[in-house]
Design a protein around this nucleic acid. Structure first.
Lengths: 249, 249
DNA sequence: TAGTGGTCTAGACCACAGA
DNA sequence: CTGTGGTCTAGACCACTAA
């Protein structure tokens, strides 16, 4: 069985192949991203997938375990394997680290101040690894809790990945929601935190008279396959027992 | 082959057992913690371990992969499996998230201001899940970089886990170094960040005249098996392009 | 060339969920 | 009861490392 390429694109040969379980994981990710398998749906069981992909059940299992670790799937013994809904609260909140004293994420509204589709700034091109002529959606919005603004967000997303985030309604959405709509699977993120005084326009947007110290959050979220999907510079009032919570292992 | 208990403590039976690969991982972790297998040493190969534990090579592989993910081991194809040295820079720095503009961790010295072995305060007992009468080592120290203090740390560690962290020399050590010495394997950590003004004694310890805004880092590190091992309240000057870096997936 | 971990297979039985 | 994922086995061959 040297060199064959079955109907599902898994490349089997003795030499120079990416491991089959990685190829299977990629195929699974592709079906989820493109909506072949929809959120909440049960996917075929292990032996069916093994037969379809022409590999053993053990190999499919390794691919499924990996996909579960990457938050694409949820497996439940005795029930089946299900596609995660990235717009569901538990997954949508995965990049949100501001919490109250009790450890709960803040609930509230979003007010969109401006939406723009334009060529990248110098900083956007560095953070999003884009060429100078490439384009982004640039959004400014305020997050509000308990009737009071607490965080100003300046967001940039490559137009290439999200063609047509035109409306204010889109601009207020969580990234995970847009990503699911535009067939983008999200992966890891990275955030740089520091503190600094609010610039006058920031203080105004947050409805505070003085120019208080803010927590500044500079964050990039990457796609499942490692391309930058969003850069966000957030400036956050930290009064009222608010915390940024980080976990590590 | 119902109910047997081989010489290495792995409990094999048809009913009610923890999975063998978890039992094997625990046995491996125990040997590393207690120094049966020393840092940098190569451990026996898969088939030897499989024979010794009386399980298949696949089961041992799963245990080893898990232990590697938990940073206990490093596996290298063609060479072998090696015990991680938790006092080596790469592992010792894993809980250190303050960086400079270039993303490098800050290098510098530590000055120990006080060391005390005493009964827990109310806050210590909450964070470290200790009873009111239990005891801790309480350390205050300052971190210095480029000749200037930048972070004040108030550390508490259960005496139970670290019996005899007496000297100032011990008190200046990284937690990972002490943990290795006291046969404690470390696991996940959790940190709560906020901002606040420096109290007078804090400003004094950091050698600043005014009372600047600081980043406050409230961190608990747990052992590999989930017991709190250290509570640290740090207060950090964030000037000179310093950042707290968080990663998430 | 010998020995290691990495991938893959084909099969068994178990634990769990739901009809 | 049936079907699912979870665990475990015994074996094969591959890729890499070092002597």
């Amino acid at each position: 069985m040297h060199m064959q390429n079955n109907g599902d694109g898994l490349h089997t040969s003795r030499f120079l192949t990416r491991p089959l379980y990685l190829q299977a994981r990629d195929a699974i990710a592709h079906r989820i991203a493109t909506g072949t398998w929809k959120p909440h749906a049960a996917i075929p069981n292990e032996s069916e997938l093994a037969r379809e992909f022409g590999v053993s059940a053990g190999t499919i299992r390794k691919a499924l375990d990996l996909a579960e670790a990457e938050r694409l799937l949820t497996r439940r013994q005795g029930r089946g394997t299900f596609v995660n809904d990235q717009s569901a609260a538990e997954h949508a909140a995965r990049y949100t680290n501001i919490r109250n004293r009790e450890g709960e994420r803040l609930s509230g509204d979003v007010e969109v101040l401006s939406v723009l589709e334009t060529t990248v700034s110098e900083k956007e091109s560095r953070r999003l690894r884009l060429r100078p002529h490439e384009r982004v959606h640039r959004i400014r919005r305020v997050r509000i809790t308990g009737g009071k603004p607490y965080m100003l967000e300046d967001v940039a997303m490559p137009t290439k990945l999200f063609p047509g985030v035109a409306s204010h309604d889109d601009a207020s959405q969580q990234l995970t929601v847009l990503a699911q709509r535009f067939c983008v699977l999200l992966g890891r993120g990275e955030e740089w935190l520091t503190i600094g005084p609010a610039a006058p326009d920031v203080a105004a947007a947050l409805h505070v008279a003085a120019e208080p110290m803010l927590l500044r959050l500079d964050r990039v979220i990457y796609t499942h396959d490692g391309r930058p999907a969003e850069w966000r510079l957030a400036q956050c009032l930290m009064e009222d027992g608010r915390y940024y919570r980080a976990n590590f292992r």
